[in-house]
Simulated assay, not measured.
Amino acid sequence: MRRVTIYSIADALGISASTVSRAFSRPDLVKASVREEVLAKAQELGYSPNRAARGLATGRTGVLGLLVPDITNPFFPPMVRAVQRASAHHDAEVLLIDSERSETMEEDLLRRIRPQVDGLVIVSPRLPTSRLRAMLTGIPSVVVNRAVRGLPSVVCDNTRALQQAAEHLHGLGHRRLALVRGPRRSWAAEQRAKAIREWTRPREVDLVELGPFEAQFEAGRTAAGDLVDSGATAAFAFDDLMAAGMIAGLNDRGEQVPADRSIVGCDDVLLARTMTPGLTTVSAPFVDLGRHAVDMLHLLITGAKPSTVTLHGELEVRGTVGAVRRQ
């Protein structure tokens, strides 16, 4: 069989080979209608663009780097899928790297993959701001789930939803609340803690702060003991995985949720919707976070300057909160 090339597509459509080439390598320079015709004809003829050849011609690899701190945390798989699907719309593939919650690995991995990708999406990075900026100098980069001055970011502001959860607990009679803080260098952990602190200041409510803890199931199980010792009747866990660990730890101590204590998580990962009882939590717009990150990165790669995007979480009230038990 004769091999299909860009010249085959050009001949079939009666356009120049350079236009076909740009439809794949620089779609922003081609009319949308023309690119659709090129893609349709390419599919009909069974043509697949050669990324290596295209890279030599354009200086681009067609690959985006995606760094996450812990792929085993259920927050990150839906984020990976969202980024992957959004990247496909820009005819790009995704190279996934997991830093295993290590600053050293994060820095080393970013240094190693920079030459292999056109740009980077970094989710919840742990590196201090100065080192992160230094690592990302000279390569298009978007940060997700952390605001970094001077770098385009996509963040989820959960302030309103967390404060709604606090108000809901207050209405159920809870007057001593626990804030179970997340990882020490987590921007999201600090923002979530700030939201709860701001809500409690003008109210006659006791706030006990526990942690920091890693965003892990076993860390939540450990935190359960601290929660019992604190005397708080309700708790805000940093995320859903930690909340699940706390519920398990409370069960180990003979306590039931929500009969004895109420628990609120954050992110609304699959675990939150499938556990029994269902976890009261704050939903994260995973699809929109991934889509905005990739769209912003594409703008950076093509020379534009996108601004930070702020999305908002929504409160999901389920079965892990209830009225305070009267003594």
Score class of each variant (00 low, 15 high):
residue 218 E to M: 01
residue 91 D to Y: 15
residue 324 V to K: 07
residue 8 S to H: 13
residue 241 L to T: 05
residue 205 V to A: 05
residue 18 S to V: 13
residue 190 E to Q: 12
residue 288 D to G: 08
residue 315 L to C: 11
residue 121 V to D: 00
residue 304 A to W: 07
residue 137 T to L: 12
residue 68 V to E: 08
residue 322 G to R: 05
residue 102 S to T: 01
residue 314 E to A: 14
residue 28 D to K: 06
residue 203 R to L: 14
residue 5 T to W: 13
residue 79 M to H: 10
residue 86 A to V: 05
residue 32 A to N: 11
residue 278 G to F: 12
residue 305 K to L: 11
residue 300 L to A: 06
residue 234 A to Y: 05
residue 294 V to Q: 01
residue 270 L to S: 14
residue 256 Q to I: 03
residue 311 L to D: 04
residue 268 D to E: 12
residue 247 I to Q: 11
residue 215 A to I: 05
residue 308 T to Q: 10
residue 8 S to C: 09
residue 307 S to D: 13
residue 21 S to I: 03
residue 104 T to P: 06
residue 247 I to D: 12
residue 98 D to P: 02
residue 207 L to C: 09
residue 22 R to F: 11
residue 83 V to H: 05
residue 231 G to C: 09
residue 188 A to S: 12
residue 8 S to M: 08
residue 277 P to Y: 10
residue 307 S to Y: 03
residue 178 A to S: 02
residue 30 V to Q: 04
residue 258 P to E: 01
residue 240 D to R: 12
residue 169 L to A: 09
residue 218 E to D: 06
residue 43 Q to K: 15
residue 77 P to T: 09
residue 131 R to E: 10
residue 322 G to T: 07
residue 182 G to A: 03
residue 287 V to T: 13
residue 107 E to V: 00
residue 302 T to G: 12
residue 18 S to D: 10
residue 187 W to R: 02
residue 34 V to Y: 09
residue 154 V to Y: 10
residue 164 Q to R: 13
residue 210 L to K: 01
residue 308 T to Y: 04
residue 264 V to K: 05
residue 276 T to Y: 11
residue 135 M to S: 15
residue 305 K to N: 13
residue 288 D to E: 15
residue 321 V to T: 15
